[in-house]
Design a protein around this nucleic acid. Structure first.
Length: 599
DNA sequence: GCCGTTTTCGGCCCGACTGTTTTCAGTCG
């Protein structure tokens, strides 16, 4: 389909936010619900599991919740022509610099509009810099509705906007949260402390860190929190919440609550926003109103508030089972919880092997070699309670080796692994780790594998992955992957999208075609537990398992200590609604052997 | 503008914090 240009989900959600802002500025009262509608649509597109443009190609735009006939039609115009007459009409009269200023934290439509008007930024090419200049010259504090404080805050907001990475990797955020929690717990008035929000839901990246603390002395706890030694500044502090900023631009928000209502507090601030909105809508139908303080129940003119010490009792009161945080995304979990039909999600302890580990065996590859030896890796695997691991060093570099050299390297490697397995087998006293002789093989540009059939035949099974030509067209890339997966020795497609969080978008593939091929041909999709990858992404895991795809978990370790990263991979699996029997390395050794032997 | 297990009309989640405005608006989650 010929289009004006590629319009990304991010651009669409920005467009929807601009539309909402525009309506808000023009006539907030009469547009109240249209504004909400555009904001919801912006949220929906931002969290979409595929490109909106692809959905449009397939005529499925209206299947996005929050996008109806009217928006779909105008959006279609945007895809076709780059602009929509209806949207343009709404945006008319609002200077684009207003929308630019709204990118600043704590600046909404009205503040932005006032600033643009008062400071004559209508035609400014860089309104943020112009605003910065005005603040520094002290011009903003004298504007109507602004003062010294707001002028100072604007300068801070500009600084934060420019300086800070917006999303943090999961282990990074998790470690920061753990540090604060243990520091807070040194104080006896802290009864319980948890990370909340996207961190508790184990999303692959985290924006702000949210926390809740159960206490009978809220003031004391909040004061301690704002005195956290590593903070760079206090953003706000009230009776129930406080926010601080850490070096690197991480904002930490704390909510405190009494133990008797801590369950509802946890629930409320764990989110997601969409989960909570759906839950409240459901509650309203039962004459209940939900908040972080509990559940208000209306009976006639009587209104009582029930309090909940635990989340479980909160959900149970709404006649549904407890919903694990990873599922709280309004993706059907509430409906299933009402019927008591949520899946029993995989746990770290269910994992019996790690299916992507790089050892220090020198395969003379052009990629990176691991740092740990086979015995170090197997010792670590024992500690983790595994039965087996797969050694998946990269294939020998193609350009530097003749076929004979490649075979020699791989034969030596096979002997070494066999020796290990043989001696382990004769070790009658202890538990031992079985080591699979595998390899992570490059998928070349045309879908051919980097090593020959003869070389492949020296392996127990092969992983394949893409390390070059990431920007192929969807059709070409899909064919490339399917060609590679077709080889009988190939069992696992590793880090399938090739994405690097905050650095590189994944390759574009026709996922339905990949899923169906995998189901039909017993191929397995990897969930790569490297925190910078977390690939396959959770939403694709969810779509894949719905079509019957099986998955593997691999840490992609290049050092034995990386094997601890398995928990992040498990979190992706849980967010993808996987049970242990959806994952091949939750199988016992003998059962897993059967999986890699089938063709 | 979207949506539907009381609805195709008439609803649309709830509350905290800050700054400036002396009673509330704006923003955020």
């Amino acid at each position: 389909m010929k289009t004006h240009k590629e319009v990304t989900n991010l651009e669409i959600s920005e467009l929807f936010r601009a539309l909402a802002a525009s309506l808000e500025l023009k006539n907030e009262k009469s547009n109240k619900f249209r504004i909400i509608a555009y904001e919801r649509a912006a949220d929906a597109v931002e969290h979409l599991s595929s490109e909106a443009k692809d959905l449009w190609d397939e005529g499925k735009l209206e299947e996005i919740p929050g996008i109806g006939k009217s928006m779909a039609e105008s959006l279609g115009e945007v895809f076709k022509k780059g602009t929509s007459s209806h949207f343009d009409e709404i945006l008319k009269g609002i200077p684009p610099s207003v929308f630019k200023l709204m990118q600043l934290p704590r600046v909404g439509a009205k503040t932005a509009s006032k600033l643009v008007h008062f400071l004559s930024l209508e035609h400014s090419k860089d309104p943020i810099s112009s605003l910065e200049k005005a603040c520094k010259e002290g011009k903003v504090s004298s504007l109507e509705g602004f003062g010294q404080e707001s002028q100072k805050d604007l300068l801070l907001a500009i600084d934060e906007f420019r300086r800070f990475v917006k999303r943090h990797l999961l282990p990074y955020a998790s470690n920061l949260a753990d540090e604060i929690i243990s520091w807070m717990k040194e104080d006896k008035s802290v009864l319980e402390a948890y990370a909340l929000g996207s961190l508790r839901r184990m999303a692959s990246t985290v924006g702000d860190i949210d926390m809740a603390i159960s206490t009978n002395e809220p003031q004391k706890v909040l004061s301690r929190f704002t005195q956290y030694p590593k903070k760079t500044r206090i953003i706000e502090k009230g009776d129930k919440t406080a926010s601080i900023l850490l070096p690197g631009g991480v904002q930490v928000d704390l909510m405190v609550g009494n133990p008797v209502l801590f369950g509802s507090l946890l629930q409320h601030f764990t989110g997601s926003k969409h989960h909570n909105i759906k839950l409240r809508e459901y509650a309203i139908k039962k004459n209940m109103s939900l908040s972080e303080y509990g559940i208000k129940v209306k009976e006639g003119s009587n209104e009582t508030t029930k309090k909940f010490a635990t989340e479980k009792s909160f959900y149970n009161f709404l006649s549904m089972e407890f919903i694990p945080p990873e599922l709280r995304e309004d993706a059907g979990e509430i409906e299933l919880a009402i019927e008591d039909k949520l899946p029993k999600l995989i746990e770290v302890a269910d994992v019996l092997g790690d299916l992507q580990i790089h050892s220090n065996f020198d395969t003379q590859t052009s990629h990176d070699v691991g740092e740990s030896s086979i015995s170090e890796i197997s010792k670590k695997a024992l500690e983790l309670g595994y039965e087996y691991v797969a050694l998946t060093d990269h294939n020998p570099s193609v350009s530097n080796h003749k076929e004979k050299d490649v075979l020699n390297i791989l034969k030596k490697r096979r002997e070494k692994i066999e020796e290990y397995n043989y001696s382990a087998k004769n070790n009658k006293n202890n538990r031992v780790i079985f080591i699979f002789n595998s390899l992570e093989i490059d998928i070349l540009q045309d879908g051919e594998l980097a090593i020959s059939d003869a070389a492949l035949n020296l392996l127990d099974f092969a992983l394949v992955s893409i390390h070059s030509s990431f920007r192929q067209e969807k059709k070409t890339a899909t064919k490339r992957v399917l060609t590679a997966l077709s080889h009988p020795k190939v069992k696992i497609f590793a880090h399938p999208t090739g994405r690097l969080l905050n650095q590189r978008e994944g390759i574009e593939l026709d996922w339905n075609e990949i899923f169906d091929f995998c189901v039909k041909n017993n191929k397995i999709l990897e969930i790569n537990a490297d925190p910078a990858r977390l690939d396959l992404p959770d939403f694709l895991v969810r779509e894949g398992v719905a079509r019957g795809v099986k998955f593997s978990l691999g840490t992609d370790s290049h050092h034995k200590d990386h094997m601890d990263n398995m928990r992040w991979g498990v979190s992706v699996a849980r967010r993808g609604w996987l049970k242990s029997d959806d994952i091949v390395n939750c199988l016992k050794l003998e059962d897993f052997k059967k999986v890699i032997q089938q063709s």
